[in-house]
Design a binder for these strands. Sequence first.
DNA 1: GTGCCGGAGTTGGCTGTACAACTTGGTCCA
DNA 2: TGGACCAAGTTGTACAGCCAACTCCGGCAC
Lengths: 248, 248
Amino acid sequence: MGVQGEARYRQVAADLREAITTGRYGSGGRLPAEGDLAQHYGVSRGTVRQALAVLRADGMVTSRRGTRRVVLGAARTQSFAELLSFTRWARSIGEEPGGRTVAIEPAAGDPGECAQLGLEPGSTVFRVLRLRTLSRVPVMIERTIYPERIGALVHGFPIDAVSHTEPLEDLGVLFTDADHTIDQWPADAEDARLLGCPPGTSLLRERRRTTDPTGVPVEWSQDRYLPGTVAFTVHNSVATTALYRRRG
Amino acid sequence: MGVQGEARYRQVAADLREAITTGRYGSGGRLPAEGDLAQHYGVSRGTVRQALAVLRADGMVTSRRGTRRVVLGAARTQSFAELLSFTRWARSIGEEPGGRTVAIEPAAGDPGECAQLGLEPGSTVFRVLRLRTLSRVPVMIERTIYPERIGALVHGFPIDAVSHTEPLEDLGVLFTDADHTIDQWPADAEDARLLGCPPGTSLLRERRRTTDPTGVPVEWSQDRYLPGTVAFTVHNSVATTALYRRRG
DNA sequence: GTGCCGGAGTTGGCTGTACAACTTGGTCCA
DNA sequence: TGGACCAAGTTGTACAGCCAACTCCGGCAC
């Protein structure tokens, strides 16, 4: 049923997810009681609850005291890795990702950059500017600021490297948490030239700060997408909320 | 420490949240071990772990096997209610919300609308168009589709009712889960007239489908914000992902 | 100095139990 | 007919315990 070596509750969650996705329980239907599921999978009720918490967070099932869980439908959530990496995301939807490094250089970070990366003002950072494509069509401009430690590694990558995230992970850099802010921003002259749109065109902007498990920022990125190329979806519920709306 | 009658783990979570927000542990610092926290609060380790799971989902702390938890910083997450309701959100940031119903009418839903609300094609729905303001300045156009059952209630609300969500809740309508999709969309003639911007202006669009605990859709809303008025923030991690990026 | 190794400390995973809070459906009574 | 009430079923909360997997640091050998 599940992958050997993975936690039992993840195997159960994966099996339930597949059962829901293939419609075995039907959208709007009820899931079996936790006790029945526990017996069926040969695990304790606690383990089943752990599995169901995963599906709950993905928005696949509801849960309410006193009544059986309701199936909401197949979830549309991606793994953390697919969200972080344009390359992985593109591949997961069957597109051919591309990347071209336009500029990469060390510099003294401005106060805002250093604050985002948790560095002393004036610390050295690496500024990377890349043009990202899907099937060779430009869709996004990526401006990433790395702390010196990481940037030095990126500096060694080939100019036409498709992915930066993957080789960084191979080098032992861990990405575990990210904050994304989504709004829109007009294209500046550089954006316009690289994306092939008129200056001032409103672009969908995603700013992202990524940290490693010790809480140290490893990346501060600003991605600008051409209109109509991407949309972002978030699920939340009374049980778990990770979404925030603020004044722009 | 906490509110009487609330679950113990929520009280512990609230106390830890406050401790982190007020800087008692310092950003980047370490949390005490689960066992120590359990002893301090006089609860079992399981309860402490439940509390920490809440903070983990909010992006306030990391967690990794083998080492103590790291404090990431004060979270910026809002309650589900504040996300759902423009009115509640505005009040929570100290702004004065306003709403004016421009149009409300029953109609035969088109196939897309009925699909979103889980209704038979051609079922009766209520289309509501509202202009939302902050401190009397127009910032957003809200187009909401309600199923007949809910729409009939909304039809009775005053035209200048600030909130629709709150009176619906008072009438026993429960909102528990929502899927948000964020992208941009050009202002049509109506948007432009109401918001006072040129037609074709790129607006930040949030589409939202909300369901009750039994999985029945209660609302399908499309909100269009003037540029620069709002931004959306999402936190996710390897542990919990509720965010999705898709082709627009 | 450098690198290997081991042990203490810590979180992840799983089990089992017990009770509380809530939903639901049916029964009974006015 | 309608409403109050009860009982069964189900999830939420909490406790206690055990072991595995992992991190981290210090000691030790080279």
